[in-house]
Simulated scan of single mutants.
Amino acid sequence: MEGKTALVTGAAGGIGEAVVRALGEREVKVAAVDKDGDRLRETVSKLTADGLHVEAFVGDVTSSADVEKVVDDVERRLGPLDFLVNAAGVLRLSEARKLTDADWSFTFAVNTSGVFFVSRAVVNRMVERRRGAIVTVASNAASTARVEMAAYAASKAAATMFTKCLGLEVAKYGIRCNLVAPGSTETPMLSGMWKDADVARAASIQGVASAYRVGIPLQRLAHPDHVAQAVVFLLSDQASHITMHDLTVDGGAALGA
């Protein structure tokens, strides 16, 4: 992977930041993209201090015009993109019947339209070069119903099928499109759901019968690096004959579904 170029969305923290670091450690030039400019620059400063070739690009994945501009800037400054990782994501918790229009629209704008806008912008450039690999970070909730997660689960399911359809269409150009589906992972998104961290962590691991949710058979939450390593594998030449695959990284929480 040395010397190749990647674009990672949602790069200011959590799984996105872990992916940027994992790629940078393999001497990939990484364009770190996030809407939160202050947090992004702070993250990139840490990574560059560690000797990684990472540059910050502030951009909003919910705006197709902004996405096109960012991708143009990335390719002008870093060169043609070899890899794309769609890691930007948001979560709004609510019972399905109580979701607001704003909650629903915002969730799909980031988790689904964002994947569409960025993938379209990048893959149209990859097609001309007849090479490239894309990984979308989805969720095990895309295939497993969760209480109060209807918008999130539906948006991730849509992003999952979009990525697979895209992969089918661009395979003839030598472009691979895969997914990584995390479960409960130690990120700000997860901790933001918790009122009592110790109780919530134990519930995630042991399961919650009243929410029809099994626990995690491996008896631990994932670390962002667990997800990042799966992303790197699917981007790498080790996965050169894998496309349209959905790799679940959840400690067995979805029972292999």
Rank of each mutant, 00 (worst) to 15 (best):
M1R: 07
E2N: 14
G3D: 12
T5F: 03
T5L: 00
A6D: 03
L7T: 11
V8C: 11
G10M: 09
A12N: 09
G14D: 06
I15G: 04
I15R: 07
E17D: 04
E17W: 01
V20Q: 02
V20Y: 01
L23W: 01
G24I: 02
E25R: 14
E25H: 08
E27L: 12
V33P: 00
D38C: 00
E42L: 03
K46P: 00
L47F: 01
L47C: 06
T48L: 00
V58T: 11
G59R: 02
D60L: 04
T62L: 00
A65M: 05
D66C: 14
V67F: 04
V70G: 06
L78Q: 00
L78M: 04
L81Y: 04
D82A: 08
L84W: 10
L91I: 00
L91Q: 01
R92K: 10
L93W: 05
A96V: 08
L99T: 13
L99I: 12
D101V: 07
D103Q: 15
T107N: 09
N111A: 08
N111E: 05
V115D: 07
F116E: 01
F116T: 03
V122A: 10
V127M: 14
A133G: 12
V137R: 03
A141C: 05
S143M: 10
A145K: 05
R146E: 12
E148Y: 07
A150S: 15
A154E: 10
K156G: 01
A158Q: 11
A159E: 03
M161Q: 13
T163E: 08
K164V: 14
C165Q: 12
C165W: 03
L166M: 15
G167V: 09
G167R: 05
E169W: 01
V170H: 04
A171N: 05
K172S: 15
Y173R: 06
V180M: 12
V180L: 12
E186Q: 15
P188H: 12
P188V: 10
M189T: 03
G192R: 05
G192K: 08
G192H: 05
K195W: 11
K195T: 14
K195E: 15
D198S: 14
A200C: 09
R201G: 04
A202M: 03
A203I: 05
S204G: 02
I205T: 12
I205N: 09
Q206S: 11
A209N: 02
A209H: 02
A211L: 15
P217N: 11
L221F: 13
A222H: 11
P224Q: 06
P224M: 05
D225R: 11
V231M: 13
V232Y: 04
F233L: 12
L234F: 13
L235G: 06
D237S: 13
A239P: 15
V249I: 15
D250H: 02
A254S: 14
A254P: 01
L255I: 13
A257D: 11
A257K: 15
A257V: 15
